[in-house]
Amino acid sequence: EVPFKVVAQFPYKSDYEDDLNFEKDQEIIVTSVEDAEWYFGEYQDSNGDVIEGIFPKSFVAVQG
């Protein structure tokens, strides 16, 4: 069931425009499960802007 919160276990950096880049310990709200390997989610950056994109499930852990 979406949405749910995950926390980055590792930093994720990608050159693909659709990917969500983040640092370790970033909290991310997952709004869609793309497939067995990928989530789609969002978070607010330090400027208060909402950043969204896809990212690999293996880089995050589900909270709770």
Rank of each mutant, 00 (worst) to 15 (best):
L20R: 01
S14D: 00
T31A: 03
E34L: 15
T31H: 06
D15C: 14
V60G: 02
Q63P: 14
E23N: 09
K24S: 06
K57T: 11
P56R: 04
F59T: 09
V2A: 07
G53N: 03
E37S: 07
S32K: 15
E23G: 07
D45I: 07
E17G: 10
P3K: 06
D18P: 10
I28A: 00
N47T: 08
D35E: 07
Y12V: 03
A36F: 10
E1V: 11
F10N: 06
E23Q: 07
V30G: 01
F10K: 14
Y12F: 09
P56N: 05
Q44N: 09
A36I: 09
D25M: 07
K13T: 09
E42M: 14
D18W: 15
P56E: 05
S58Y: 10
D18C: 15
S46F: 10
F59M: 11
I28F: 03
Y12P: 00
N21R: 07
K13Q: 10
Q9P: 02
S46L: 11
A8F: 03
Y39V: 04
I51T: 06
E37R: 07
W38T: 10
Y43C: 06
S46I: 12
K5Q: 06
P11Y: 05
Q44V: 14
E27F: 06
L20F: 09
K5I: 13
D18I: 12
P3G: 05
V30Y: 03
V6Y: 00
F10H: 12
V30S: 00
G41P: 03
A36H: 12
A61N: 10
D18A: 14
K57M: 12
E17N: 09
I28G: 00
G41V: 04
A36T: 11
D49W: 09
E42R: 13
E23S: 08
V30N: 03
D19P: 01
F59Q: 06
S58I: 10
G53Y: 04
K5H: 08
E42Q: 14
D19Y: 14
D15E: 13
D19S: 14
I54C: 14
F22N: 00
D45N: 12
V60S: 02
K5D: 01
A61G: 07
V50F: 08
Q26M: 05
I28N: 03
F4G: 03
V33S: 07
I51L: 13
F59V: 11
A61K: 13
A61W: 10
N21G: 05
D19K: 14
Y39T: 02
E42G: 10
L20D: 01
E52D: 09
K13G: 04
I28V: 04
E1T: 13
F55H: 02
E34G: 09
S14T: 10
Q26V: 05
S58P: 05
E37N: 12
D15G: 11
N47G: 07
I29V: 11
Q63I: 15
E42T: 12
E17M: 11
I29S: 05
D45A: 10
S32A: 14
G64M: 12
K5S: 08
V33E: 06
V50P: 06
P3E: 03
Q63D: 09
V2K: 06
V60E: 03
F22M: 01
A61T: 13
E17C: 14
D15W: 08
Q9R: 12
E1L: 12
E52I: 10
W38Y: 13
I28W: 03
F59P: 04
E37C: 14
E1Y: 10
E34A: 14
V7Y: 08
S58M: 08
N21T: 09
D19W: 06
Q63E: 11
N47E: 07
F22I: 01
E42N: 13
L20N: 01
E23A: 08
Q44D: 03
D25Q: 05
G53L: 04
V50N: 07
V62N: 08
G64N: 11
A36G: 13
S14L: 02
V50T: 13
D35W: 08
E37H: 12
S32E: 08
N47L: 07
D45E: 06
S46Y: 09
E52Q: 15
F59E: 05
F10Y: 12
V6Q: 03
G53Q: 01
Q63W: 11
S58Q: 09
E52P: 02
Q26I: 06
S32N: 11
D19V: 12
E1D: 11
D15S: 11
V2Q: 05
G41K: 00
K57A: 15
P11D: 10
V62P: 10
Q44K: 12
S46W: 08
S14V: 02
F4K: 02
S32M: 11
Q63V: 15
Q63L: 15
N21W: 12
A36V: 08
D45R: 06
N21Y: 11
Q63G: 11
P56T: 03
E37P: 05
Q9K: 14
D49T: 12
E37L: 10
G41Q: 02
F59I: 09
P11W: 05
E17F: 10
Q63A: 13
E37I: 09
K5T: 13
I54H: 15
F22R: 01
F4H: 01
V50W: 13
V33T: 06
D45H: 07
K24F: 05
V30D: 01
E23R: 06
G48D: 04
D15H: 10
P56K: 05
P3M: 04
E37Q: 09
Q26G: 02
V50I: 14
D18N: 14
E34F: 15
Q9Y: 07
I29C: 14
E42H: 15
Q9W: 07
D15N: 12
V60H: 02
T31Q: 05
E17S: 11
P56D: 07
Y39C: 05
Y39K: 00
V50C: 13
K13W: 13
G53K: 00
I54R: 15
V7F: 07
I28C: 04
D25S: 06
V2N: 04
A36R: 09
F40E: 02
I54S: 14
P11N: 08
V33M: 08
A8H: 03
V50E: 02
D49F: 12
Y12D: 02
E17I: 13
L20Y: 01
E37D: 13
S32G: 12
E27V: 15
D45L: 13
I54G: 11
D49H: 12
E27Y: 06
E34C: 15
V2E: 05
S58L: 08
Y39N: 00
Q44M: 13
D18H: 14
Q44T: 14
D25T: 05
G64F: 09
V62Y: 12
E34K: 15
T31V: 07
K57I: 12
S14M: 02
Y16I: 12
E37K: 09
E17R: 10
V7N: 04
K13M: 10
V7H: 05
Q44R: 13
F4Y: 03
S14K: 00
F40Q: 06
D35P: 04
S14P: 01
F10T: 06
V62W: 09
D45F: 05
E1I: 13
